[in-house]
Structure formats: C-alpha cells, structure tokens
Design a binder for these strands. Structure first.
Length: 450
DNA sequence: CTAGCCTTGAAC
DNA sequence: GTTCAAGGCTAG
C-alpha cells in the first residue's frame, strides 16, 4: 500500500501528466486516461481530429480532442489486448509479472537517485562541476505531443529535430477483439519465447550507497523508462505477428529497429547531446548505433537477465539452447560472445550507474571525424570517463584494475558490434535480412562514410 | 462523455 | 486474507 502510494507521488501519467493511480492496460497511468482508454476500446469508438492530429494532450486539454488522446495512449504503450473482450471483472492478467518487475526496477532506481541526491546535498563536496542540478524527481521523459504515426520509415535526420513514433495497428486488433474470440494475443506462436518471471538478477545486487558523482546521477536520469519502452515495442511485435511476419529472425530485426528508435530518442533528449548541432548528432549516432544497441541488450541481461536465457527488450526471454540450435553458426557464436561479455560484466558487478556512464562514453566518441564541435565531444567524453573512474573508485577502490577491466569490456562491445553489423549487412545484401528501416539506414550510413 | 469512486476476483 | 488491476456505476 505504502509503496503504491510512494509510486503514485512521483509518477506522472505519460498521456496527460496527471497523477498516476496505478498500472492500467500495460503501464502507469492516471484514472481518467484509464477510463478513457477502456471506453474507447470497449465501445469501438472512432474519433476524428478536427486539426492536424497534433493536439496537445495535458491535464487541462485532454478532453478537447479524444482522437489525439487515444493516439497518444497507443504511442506511450497502452495495450489494447489488456481490455477484456469478455468484460470479465477482477483477477489478474498476463501483465502481472511485468508490472511487478517494473515496480522493482523503479524502486531500485529511485532509491539510488534519492540516496545519491541526499549524500550530495549533505556530504562534503569534494568535487565541483559547473552543472545545473535539478533537485527532486524526474519521472518519465516527456513525449512530444507532435508525435504521429507514420507509414514511411522515418530517416534519422527527421528523428533528431522532432521525434516520430511508430503506431500500433488498432484496426488489426479490433477485428480480433470484436470477433468474440478469446482476448489477448495468441499463445500458440513463438513457444520458445517466454515471459520472464520476476526471479531474475534484479535482486542479486543490493544497491550500493556510495557518494555518487553529480554527473553520474544526471546520466542516470536520462535513462528511458523501461516499462514504457517494453510496452511500446511489445505492441509493435504483436502487430508484426498479426500481420504474419514469418520468422523469429525477422521479429528480432523489428525489435532491434524499434530499440534503435528508442536509443535515438534517448540521445536526442540527453544532457550534452541535445546541445549539439544536428549534423554532429547524426555523425555520432551513425558511428556508435550498433555499440549502443548491443550495450542496451547486454545491460538488460546483466541487470535483470537470468542464466541460460536471453532477456529481450520486450521482457520476453529466449532460451540460449534455442538460439544455439536454431540460429545458424555465425549468429549463434555472436550471441555466445555476447553472453560471455554478460558473464564478465556480472563478475565485475557492473551496476546501473556504470552502464549509464558507459553509454555516454560510447555516444561521445572523440574519434569521430569531421565534427563541427570536436572539442565539446572530447570534453564530454573526458567528463564521462572521469565520472566513471570516480564512481568506480568510490564503490570498489579495493578492486585494483576494475576500471581498466570495464574499459576492456567496452572494446569488446565495439568489436562485437562490428561483427554483428557485418552479419546484418551480409544478411541484408543476400535478401534474407530486414529492409527499409532505420536499422538498414544506419548500416548503409556507416559504410558510405567509411 | 468524463472521471472519481466502487466492486470483483485471480494471484500471491 | 491481502493485493490491485480489471470492469461498473453515476454525478456532473
């Protein structure tokens, strides 16, 4: 009860910014958006926007345009399949474990931020950085309300100034929903992919309480909301499955593509990066997208994954034995190397804060050529590196060489992601891989630069 | 139609 | 028995 209230106090509804009342249809929302979503789906409402589908949805204006409100509900990841076709009351649905894990993650993150903030405020300030530091909590990254579904795959340059989102297909779902059939997604398909149970690595590290460098906290705040991401990408995968996307590999490509969108969005709204000119932003992202994609997966598996399985961004798990037997030699060995890396990072007990720093280290790569502002990139890289060093020394000063080990892992990430890129590119050229999406745009961009 | 409060019931 | 996310009810 208390934890629920504590959660409510700090979370804002991703649709309208009102106070959250609990998990509803896949994520934390307010009571009114919960009701609105339910009425819309249950009654098959069709709304039309009187404007250009760009209406602002906030607490004061959410009643003005139901069409844009519903679109925003879908964009932030509210799940159509959580509305029961049979209208049965009570009980729990399949999202239960997902909610539970998200709660644990949020608690862990908030504890870290609160603890770090407290110590920074009260402790003797041994380091001074010229950084504005916002006190209090920073809930979800705000979703720009100009975001609209798009039929064409958007290019990176169009994503950077103002982000667009992929829409979920309401009409596809509706035909299934109004069919009087069983609610929810099909369970028969993809039997090798399972929803992860809560007994994952998340509990294996108790959060340390060292004095956290201010910049590390800022980096941590930039991290996207995991459940929102999970919901959004799961909805997209469900849509692909309903559209008959044939095999697991193709679905994985869609998953990677959608994760890439989220990485671009993370970068776009992150400290330092948003100060860069768009050209420099593009150059940096073109250079490191695959490192970040790999790092994202590795980080998820180190912090929340379980032995012998691969935890996906959708919260689903894929057994490594399945990968080994179905993926083909090259891909299976890539996954195995990734898993070895996860093991190394587990031994080093790399935590969320360190991953947050590493992401910035990777993003602000000073080796990228022809930047307009190479000094700035260099300086952010140095700041990220010294913050990471400072943090690792404060948490594990007794472990000599741990920092060096971390940097070694970083180079392993780089070489592994290069191999993964080559693999994808070959697949793409031979017609077996994905096409016409952000993933492919990035693959081509790097090769045309080189 | 909205949104706050109420009832229900499977999972824990 | 408790929890809490579903659906239901209803004044405004």
């Amino acid at each position: 009860m208390e934890s629920r209230q504590a959660l409510c106090l700090i979370e804002l509804c991703p649709v309208c910014g009102d106070q959250v009342s609990g998990y509803h249809y896949g994520l934390l929302t307010c009571e009114s958006c919960k009701g609105f979503f339910k009425r819309t789906v249950q009654n098959n409402k069709q709304y039309v926007c009187a404007e250009q589908q760009e209406c602002t949805i906030d607490r004061g204006q959410r009643k003005r345009c139901p069409s844009c409100r519903f679109l925003k509900c879908l964009h932030v990841g509210m799940r159509l399949e959580a509305v029961r076709a049979d209208r049965k009351r009570g009980g729990r649905n399949k999202f239960g474990p997902m909610y539970k894990r998200d709660r644990a993650l949020k608690q862990q993150r908030d504890a870290l931020i609160q603890d770090g903030g407290f110590r920074l405020d009260s402790g003797s300030s041994t380091h001074h950085r010229n950084l504005t530091f916002t006190t209090g909590f920073h809930p979800l990254p705000m979703i720009p309300n100009t975001s609209l579904p798009t039929a064409q795959p958007p290019h990176l340059c169009s994503l950077l100034p103002s982000t667009q989102y992929q829409s979920t297909s309401f009409s596809n779902w509706k035909s299934q929903h109004s069919n009087n059939g069983s609610p929810g997604p099909r369970d028969g398909k993809s039997t090798h992919i399972l929803y992860s149970s809560p007994s994952s690595r998340i509990h294996s590290f108790s959060p340390p309480a060292p004095s956290m460098p201010q910049l590390v906290m800022e980096f941590l705040r930039c991290d996207p909301d995991e459940l929102q991401l999970q919901s959004k990408i799961s909805a997209r995968i469900l849509q692909e499955e309903e559209n008959g996307t044939p095999n697991t590999f193709s679905l994985m490509c869609v998953m990677a593509d959608q994760t890439l969108f989220s990485i671009v969005e993370w970068a776009r709204t992150s400290i330092f990066f948003k100060q860069l000119k768009v050209d420099d932003q593009m150059k940096l992202l073109h250079s490191c997208w695959s490192d970040l994609l790999l790092l994202d997966t590795v980080c998820r598996n180190v912090l929340q994954g379980r032995e012998n399985s691969l935890l996906l961004v959708t919260g689903q798990e894929m057994e490594l034995s399945y990968v080994a037997s179905h993926a083909g030699l090259t891909l299976a060995s890539l996954v195995q190397r990734g898993q070895d890396l996860v093991e190394k990072l587990l031994i080093l007990k790399v935590d969320r804060q360190e991953f947050a720093c590493i992401k910035f280290l990777v993003l602000f790569n000073p080796d990228v050529k022809q930047l307009e502002d190479p000094q700035f990139v260099e300086s952010v890289h140095e700041q990220a590196e010294s913050s990471l060093l400072e943090y690792t020394l404060s948490t594990s000063s007794h472990l000599i060489g741990r920092f060096a080990h971390l940097l070694l892992c970083l180079s392993e990430i780089r070489s592994l992601s290069t191999l993964a890129e080559d693999y994808l590119y070959c697949k793409h050229l031979s017609g077996g891989g994905p096409c016409n999406n952000l993933l492919i745009e990035m693959l081509h961009a790097k090769r045309s630069c080189a």
